[in-house]
């Protein structure tokens, strides 16, 4: 299979090859009675590379597998197949099997700051958790000092150390979560929909904070998961578009937004509300198919205005464009027209 250009050199931070994650549906008892449980391929054979210092965004609608991909990379879910290399070293499938040093250099910001912070812990203990687990011999005052500095860095104050999460607004909670994620000065940061649970004016604050932190820590690599295309365009260097567990298009952010190649990417961009009275929305139709029974061939073919017979029988592979090697698209029609 042709994947995007491989860069095994020191330039790539994260290399994912053929990553799949499937979930079995139903209870064990049901599985036994039915003989076989239905399987959902949440992530289906995804390969991609993130260069050192690069921000790659994964976009797509709910259920496309972008969050599952992020969680699998972080070792929170066990992959069904595939290899993940971090800094040219293969990663253990589960986070608890990864060495502490590696764990400290990979951190994550979650979507919902109401469930990602333990409501019964004080802010200083929440932010200190990754610091403590890394080096147990630090004194309480040394930890407090570090946590205080982190809080100031994310726009909170030292006075907040002893408070509980419920004393903060959603945006402030997300700041606490960010402070925890950067506490160990990670080299790789996964941001899973970090602003989608927040109010509009607060989203800008959090995105700016993340931009700031990225600039401060030279060479921070990040994987940014979002369904907010405008935020992705603002924040990411490169963008991957996922549909039903598969990567359908990868391109530098500017090029993707200016000239989307995959019909799904085009539809996604056209669907963003804001243009007056449905201009250019005629092509938007249908909904995500049932993931238990995905369409044969290209998963997008039932909704695709360009679909031909080949799309219904043969699954397109993600292939680099011959003219622009930085771009790749998984489409029979688009590949032909772009070459």
């Amino acid at each position: 299979m042709t994947v995007e250009p491989q860069d095994p050199g020191p330039g790539s931070m994260l290399v994912v090859e053929g990553l799949s994650k499937s979930f079995q549906q139903g209870t064990p008892l049901f599985r036994r009675l039915a003989g076989k449980a239905p399987i959902v391929h949440a992530v289906d054979d995804v390969s991609l590379t993130i260069a050192r210092g690069e921000t790659l965004a994964l976009v797509g609608e709910s259920g496309c597998g972008k969050s599952t991909f992020a969680r699998t990379v972080m070792g929170l879910e066990r992959p069904s197949a595939g290899i993940i290399r971090f800094d040219s070293q293969p990663l253990a499938p589960s986070v608890s099997d990864r060495p502490a040093k590696l764990r400290r250099s990979m951190q994550m910001i979650f979507q919902d700051p109401y469930t990602s912070l333990n409501g019964r812990w004080r802010v200083r203990d929440i932010v200190a958790e990754p610091i403590r687990e890394g080096q147990g011999d630090l004194s309480q005052s040394a930890i407090n000092e570090q946590v205080g500095e982190l809080l100031v860095k994310v726009g909170l104050s030292q006075d907040d150390l002893a408070k509980y999460p419920h004393q903060f607004s959603g945006g402030q909670r997300q700041r606490i979560a960010i402070a925890r994620a950067i506490a160990t000065a990670p080299a790789f940061l996964v941001c899973d929909e970090p602003t989608s649970a927040l109010d509009v004016s607060v989203q800008a604050q959090i995105l700016n904070l993340m931009c700031e932190l990225r600039e401060q820590s030279e060479g921070l690599t990040s994987l940014f998961i979002s369904h907010n295309l405008a935020a992705v365009r603002h924040f990411a260097d490169r963008v991957g578009v996922m549909y039903l567990g598969r990567l359908v298009e990868v391109a530098p952010a500017q090029e993707l937004f200016e000239a989307p190649q995959h019909p799904y990417t085009q539809m996604l961009l056209a669907a963003v509300p804001g243009k007056r009275r449905g201009q250019g929305k005629a092509g938007i139709q249908g909904e995500l198919p049932n993931p238990l029974a995905p369409p044969t061939g290209c998963a997008f073919n039932p909704r695709c205005p360009l679909a031909v017979d080949r799309c219904r029988s043969e699954r397109p592979v993600l292939a680099a464009s011959r003219l622009k090697p930085a771009r790749s698209v998984a489409c029979h029609v688009a590949t032909v027209s772009s070459v």
């Binding site: 929170l76 608890s96 764990r103 333990n118 958790e129 687990e133």
Partner: peptide
């Protein structure tokens, strides 16, 4: 999950 990532 965050605690798992912290190595707890």
């Amino acid at each position: 999950q965050a605690a798992r990532l912290s190595g707890t």
